[in-house]
Measured scan of single mutants.
Amino acid sequence: TKVFYNGTYVEFNNPEKAKKYAEKVAKKVGGTFTEKNGQFHVE
């Protein structure tokens, strides 16, 4: 499961961990995250 952010991504074996990371990054940058095709995108 990949989490895309700012033109790069971090890959996780565990979708649950990926979601938590996406939430954390989104919170940090004051943005939101969306799930597309089983991957997370932070905006």
Rank of each mutant, 00 (worst) to 15 (best):
G30Q: 08
G38L: 04
G30E: 05
V3I: 03
P15Q: 10
Y5I: 09
Q39G: 10
V42I: 14
K20G: 07
G7V: 02
Q39H: 15
V29S: 07
K27Y: 09
N13E: 15
N6S: 07
V3M: 02
T1R: 05
K17P: 05
T32Y: 14
K24D: 14
E16I: 12
E16G: 09
E35T: 07
V10R: 12
T32H: 11
F33C: 14
N6C: 12
F4Q: 03
K19A: 09
A22S: 03
K19E: 06
E23F: 06
G7D: 07
K24C: 15
Q39S: 13
K24R: 13
K24A: 15
E11I: 13
E11Q: 11
E23G: 05
V42F: 04
K2W: 08
G7Y: 05
H41I: 13
G7P: 00
E11D: 06
F12A: 00
E23R: 08
G31R: 03
G31K: 04
G38C: 05
V3K: 00
G7F: 06
K28H: 13
E16V: 10
G7H: 07
V25F: 12
E35L: 09
A26T: 03
K17E: 15
Q39R: 04
A22G: 03
V3S: 00
F4Y: 14
A18R: 00
P15N: 08
P15M: 13
E11L: 12
K17T: 14
N14H: 09
K2V: 08
N14E: 10
P15L: 11
F12R: 01
N6Y: 10
E23L: 09
N14K: 07
F12S: 01
A22D: 00
K20R: 13
T32R: 10
K19H: 07
K17C: 14
K17L: 15
F4I: 06
F40S: 02
E43S: 13
P15I: 13
A18Y: 00
K20I: 12
K20N: 11
V42C: 03
F40T: 00
E23A: 12
V10Q: 07
K19W: 07
N13M: 12
N37I: 04
T1F: 15
G7C: 10
A22Q: 01
E35F: 13
E16N: 09
G7R: 05
N6A: 10
K2P: 04
G38A: 05
V3F: 02
K19S: 06
Y21Q: 02
F4K: 02
E43I: 15
T1M: 07
A22F: 02
K20S: 11
G38T: 03
V29G: 05
K17I: 14
K28V: 11
T1Y: 15
F33H: 04
E43H: 14
F12N: 00
A26S: 07
N13G: 11
V42A: 01
A26L: 03
K28A: 14
G30H: 10
V10H: 07
Y21T: 02
V42D: 01
E43Q: 13
N14G: 06
V10M: 10
E43T: 14
E35S: 07
Y21S: 01
H41L: 09
E23Q: 12
V10F: 09
E35R: 06
G30R: 07
A18N: 00
K28E: 15
K27W: 08
A18G: 04
F33V: 15
T1P: 06
Y9H: 07
H41G: 02
K28M: 15
T8E: 09
K2M: 09
F40R: 00
T1V: 14
N13I: 11
Q39F: 07
Y5Q: 03
N6W: 07
K19P: 01
F33L: 14
P15V: 13
Q39D: 15
K27V: 09
Y9D: 03
T34I: 14
G38D: 05
K20A: 14
A22C: 05
Y9C: 08
F4C: 07
E11A: 11
V10L: 10
T1C: 12
F33N: 04
V3E: 00
T8I: 11
V10G: 02
A22K: 01
K2N: 04
G38H: 05
K36M: 10
N37P: 03
K24E: 15
G7A: 05
K27T: 09
V3C: 05
K2I: 08
V29A: 06
K20D: 13
G38Y: 04
T1H: 14
E35G: 04
V25N: 02
T32P: 02
Y5D: 02
A18M: 00
G30Y: 05
N37W: 07
E23P: 00
V10N: 04
K19N: 04
